[in-house]
Design a protein around this nucleic acid. Structure first.
Lengths: 227, 227
DNA sequence: AGCAATATTGGCCATTCGACCAATAGCATC
DNA sequence: GATGCTATTGGTCGAATGGCCAATATTGCT
């Protein structure tokens, strides 16, 4: 579990910093943002706590960086990494399939942690709003391209994106609480409402959410912990 | 701010217990569930921390009781305390007006805290699911009565209730993050979607959410802290 | 090869937390 | 009015945290 003792090794600051962020992100995804501790991260890296503190003088910054890493990775996997040849409709289907697949998955719980921790961590708060804006931007762009190509129909893509994201946030909570009774019905509501927002027949998206591609799991997110 | 020094006063256990729960609930609403500490609660009551620990051997139980107190109070104010003469439509309007009035209000933040703390607090987790079930039950009953009296139209009231609550949860997050840009549009989405779920014209509910009755604040929740 | 910059270490401190416990004092009952 | 039950006190303990600092050793550069 713990890294074997290493003779002191000196690494280039950017690389070390990235290592720390990756380890912190993996830890936050695995055990929650609350257990993101200087000591825990240091232990995961086989390093002294003070070193983590050296790169991140305030834990708040570390939490913000870890969250940014995890959130950006997922967003990138769902948007930028999508095959550019896919039509907006297929892309949206894949998006919904990924986002409604698993209940209680790590990334939903991480978002929940981040929303809550916003209360006491200004840097994390800034990062959360940044990531939310980035989501809105990416999704808005997808919707706009769908409208341009004629497969979606909505007057204002940014507004539609905001609405869809709020729906998915509510679903996130259902997922996080594992309020199993109710998750399926909420998922149906999400799919139906999104279809309505996009001017689609619900069936066009519904089959996406129930589809079994990707084995029901979200795309892998790069992890720092060695196997 | 702090209670004046009191000569040791002995109270009946049920009364003292209620005092503690009320103070804890007020504290959680004011400063978040994370700052619900034996010492903080004791300080608010002008009492020694050990006493709080005497009534609640585990902080988890105290948090659960405090959350139950706040959540039940709000739910009671919105359902049981509603004038029985009001029609289901009027009741639903009042409900939406109260729930969509303020962004970033204390009770939404408390729910967010509770959802998150569920990770590490079993007793609180049980209480959260209990309160969610109670909300669904109350709302379901309201919808059913509306269907019976002909002002709502939906095939399955419990399912509709679950969907509406998920919508409101998403709104709660928007409120908690104070993602001001977006709150209004999300609120509109919530109102429109709820109207659709209930087989209503959106305008019938929309005017409710924008209405200014109640001065835009939620109904008062009993607080324990003396003025 | 020598040297200087600095990444890294090890340690320490103050704080806060939940939990526990014996002693004390208030209240009800007799 | 005396007495016993127990609510309440005051204090302590161990664990965990974030932050800070001087010493050290590693690495890249001259």
């Amino acid at each position: 579990m713990s890294a074997t003792i290493q003779p002191r090794k000196r690494k280039a600051p950017p690389q070390r910093r990235e290592e720390i962020v990756a380890a912190a992100s993996a830890l936050a995804l695995r055990e929650g943002l609350q257990s993101l501790t200087l000591r825990r991260v240091a232990e995961a890296l086989g390093v002294v706590p003070g070193l983590v503190n050296h790169y991140f003088p305030a834990v708040d910054d570390l939490a913000a960086a870890a969250f940014a890493h995890a959130a950006s990775a997922e967003r990138n996997a769902l948007f930028a990494a999508a095959p550019p040849s896919t039509s907006p409709l297929h892309h949206m289907r894949a998006l919904l399939r990924a986002l409604t697949a698993v209940q209680g998955d790590a990334i939903s719980l991480l978002w929940l942690d981040a929303w809550q921790a916003t209360r006491t961590r200004p840097a994390l708060r800034a990062e959360v709003t940044h990531q939310m804006a980035a989501w809105r931007s990416d999704l808005s762009r997808l919707i706009a391209s769908g409208v341009a190509s004629g497969c979606f129909r909505t007057p204002d893509p940014p507004t539609t994106a905001t609405r869809i994201l709020a729906l998915l946030d509510g679903l996130s909570i259902q997922a996080a609480i594992r309020f199993t009774i109710g998750y399926a019905t909420v998922r149906d509501l999400v799919v139906e409402t999104i279809a309505r927002e996009l001017g689609l027949e619900a069936t066009l998206l519904r089959q996406a959410a129930v589809g079994e591609g990707n084995n029901g799991t979200r795309p892998d997110i790069p992890s720092a912990t060695p196997p």
